[in-house]
Design a protein around this nucleic acid. Structure first.
Lengths: 209, 209
DNA sequence: GCCCAGCTACTCAAATTTGACTAATGGAGG
DNA sequence: CCTCCATTAGTCAAATTTGAGTAGCTGGGC
């Protein structure tokens, strides 16, 4: 699974109703173009595809208010809401060394209740541990790790990064348990990571690293 | 850049001459299907594409020795050799949080001289440090990290994983400096990542080099 | 003597992703 | 009032990736 469906669904959802350029701008505002494949083409493709699949509803809309071709606005349907939460839960719980998917999921995690996020993150921890042991067991030949030659460095790297991710996840769990952030159903003001109409995007046109 | 061109080039190179199924099998033997996109379709596509680009040379070859349709054998051209080393150097030096590309590059690193690998890894370290500081500086708003809300967790994760990768890279550099492994031009037996000791040879039909 | 499962080797359509391009508008500067 | 050009909004062809086949042969069991 790539991160784009989750990102686009989440962006449209936060606006209630959004056109492609708005989504594109939000993703840029989140810095998503740096850590995921959110080129214009991918975004417009995802919007159309999801509209075709009934996950989004496309409103035929008047010419744009400020230049450019007429724009289509999209809205998340009930099926889309379910798909969104399915993707979000999956991304939080699954370990697949895809940084982009996890980043997107962290960005949206507060749409779920605190207890569920904790459960999903613990599931991730369990899967991480499973994968780690499968690497160490499966790739350790009888003659000790030395006999693998430099190939052993690959496994070494995986184990190292799995450990790092576990450590970070443990920290996140602790912070959430400790009351950090405001989750669904907790009445706090929901953190809105979108640009309001006419708001300047401070992250647009920035230098690439 | 995806890892597939590097993997396919490296696989063909190790055989001298190889057909698609052989490449596919090698990659599976390396476990590459678990950490990179090496589905059959991608492999055959990459072979054809690279043949079209003159990076590989396609021999029209007799029907297979053991069932199935006739097979095409490929050989790395001089342009391909250069492309291979270009990709390999780039993969070792560039930091782009793509685990699959790095894994492939580690697997092939011994095709380069020891000193060059060390230089490339140090370059990677430098880029990692640069990226890390761009994250911490750029994404830290004036009001302190708290004002980012849970979005700060994404940066936190990035920094954490960048640190982990730097640590692993440092270790690798130390091991290589300490004389580990046998690199190009060092006269040691080149590590052939195709067959393990006592393991059944799935490539019985392969040409002797 | 035959059937079927499984291996070998590759093909193909559909979906996705990329990178470059188009086209309309409004405002700054001359 | 006219030209340039940045911004807005999106399109399109080409490349790549995915997932699901196809088709020839072999060997083992009954």
């Amino acid at each position: 699974m790539s991160a784009i469906r989750l990102l686009v669904l989440g962006a449209v959802r936060q606006h209630g109703r959004a056109h492609g350029y708005q989504v594109r701008n939000d993703l840029e505002y989140w810095g998503a173009h740096e850590w995921s494949n959110t080129k214009p083409g991918s975004i417009y493709h995802a919007l159309k595809q999801m509209a075709k699949q009934g996950v989004l509803h496309a409103h035929e809309v008047a010419p744009s208010a400020a230049g450019g071709p007429p724009r289509t606005e999209y809205e998340v349907t009930e099926a889309g809401r379910q798909e969104y939460f399915r993707l979000l839960r999956e991304a939080l719980a699954a370990y697949d060394q895809k940084t982009d998917v996890l980043s997107a999921a962290i960005g949206f995690m507060v749409d779920l209740p605190r207890a569920e996020v904790l459960a999903l993150l613990r599931e991730r921890m369990a899967k991480l541990a499973l994968w780690r042991s499968s690497v160490t067991e499966y790739y350790t030949p009888e003659g000790g790790p030395e006999s693998l030659g430099h190939i052993g460095e690959i496994m070494h790297m995986w184990v190292h990064s799995a450990d790092a991710e576990a450590e970070w996840t443990r920290g996140l769990i602790a912070r959430i348990e400790g009351g950090a952030y405001s989750f669904a159903g907790e009445g706090g003001d929901p953190f809105v990571g979108v640009l309001a109409d006419g708001q300047e995007n401070p992250y647009a046109a920035r230098q690439d690293a």
